[in-house]
């Protein structure tokens, strides 16, 4: 008995030991690029060549990169302007995505629609075509329709998020007893008003999730914004700006690398925090789709 328990203990130590080693290596791997860009943003290194080990463990903190990022004219535009553009695009996309997703989810859940499943299958296939995959045909079509602008972008961003979210919304609305909106309809609302005031409110988590997905999708898109807006620097979004700052658009005219790092931090950290805050919600949504019961 003693031999067995010793063997068991050794095995346990070995098992936990390996676990911690793997976890620590993966934790370093996960954090390193983020730590690196964070440190770079507070350095005064103008390019990759001049970045050294000492910059990862700095003795001095410089704010010059942030100052230049927020105040100087970059390539004919400016970072605050690009962020503002991105916020407008992302905000509008979020609002429209929420409406479209919830209305569709409501219809799929509650209403008597002929060939509902065929329709659902049909729109589901669309989610297999992210706008990066349809960028070329979209560009060609929108060029003809004079939609190579914000309106076109919002239009293109919305469906992917909306359809995905509509399916989540459908499941969520399924779980809301119909009597909630029926009572509202008897008490004096039309069906659409009941949808807006009662169902949207009861499905608030899905509304928030959809808004977040829509916002993220538009805020972080590069492929479509780049192809639609490239010629007009004043209309650039923050991702095009960052792409330029990283020296990938026109290496010769790119400003100092620490400015790119500062831009990455300013754009990345708020979204990262938003993501983590909503992570529980996200996990639940993804797991539900993967057939995991919570």
């Amino acid at each position: 008995m003693k031999g067995l328990s010793l063997k068991y203990k050794l095995f346990k130590i070995l098992r936990l030991g390996i676990s911690y080693i793997v976890l620590i290596i993966m934790a370093i791997f996960s954090v390193f690029p983020l730590y690196y860009v964070f440190m770079t943003s507070f350095s005064n290194a103008p390019n990759l060549i001049s970045l050294g080990v000492s910059d990862l463990f700095p003795k001095h903190i410089y704010f010059i990169a942030y100052k230049e990022l927020l105040t100087t004219n970059l390539y004919g535009g400016s970072f605050p302007l690009w962020v503002r553009n991105s916020l407008i695009l992302a905000g509008s996309t979020a609002v429209i995505s929420v409406l479209l997703a919830l209305i569709t989810g409501y219809a799929l859940s509650r209403l008597d629609i002929p060939a509902k499943k065929t329709l659902a299958t049909f729109i589901y296939i669309v989610t297999f075509f992210p706008y990066t995959a349809t960028a070329v045909p979209l560009y060609l079509l929108f060029a003809k329709m004079h939609l190579l602008n914000y309106m076109g972008l919002i239009l293109a961003y919305t469906p992917g998020t909306s359809i995905f979210a509509a399916f989540i919304a459908k499941l969520s609305i399924d779980s809301i007893p119909p009597s909630y909106e029926e009572i509202a309809m008897i008490d004096g609302l039309s069906r659409f008003q009941a949808f807006l005031r009662i169902i949207m409110r009861l499905a608030l988590p899905v509304v928030a999730l959809t808004a977040l997905l829509g916002f993220d999708g538009a805020y972080l898109d590069f492929a479509l914004a780049y192809s639609f807006l490239l010629p007009n620097v004043k209309q650039w979004t923050a991702t095009i700006g960052l792409y330029y700052l990283a020296g990938l658009l026109n290496p010769a005219s790119a400003p100092a690398y620490n400015i790119f790092a500062a831009g990455s931090v300013l754009m990345g950290i708020p979204l990262m925090i938003l993501f983590i805050v909503s992570q529980r919600m996200m996990t639940r949504a993804y797991s539900n789709l993967a057939g995991v019961k919570q």
């Binding site: 007893p177 009597s179 909630y180 029926e182 008897i186 409110r201």
Partner: peptide, 17 residues
């Protein structure tokens, strides 16, 4: 429409918001 029929309803699950 329901809203103009001047009826009230108490559903099984009460549907209290």
């Amino acid at each position: 429409p329901p809203k103009d029929r001047r009826v009230a309803m108490v559903p099984q699950n009460y549907a209290i918001y």
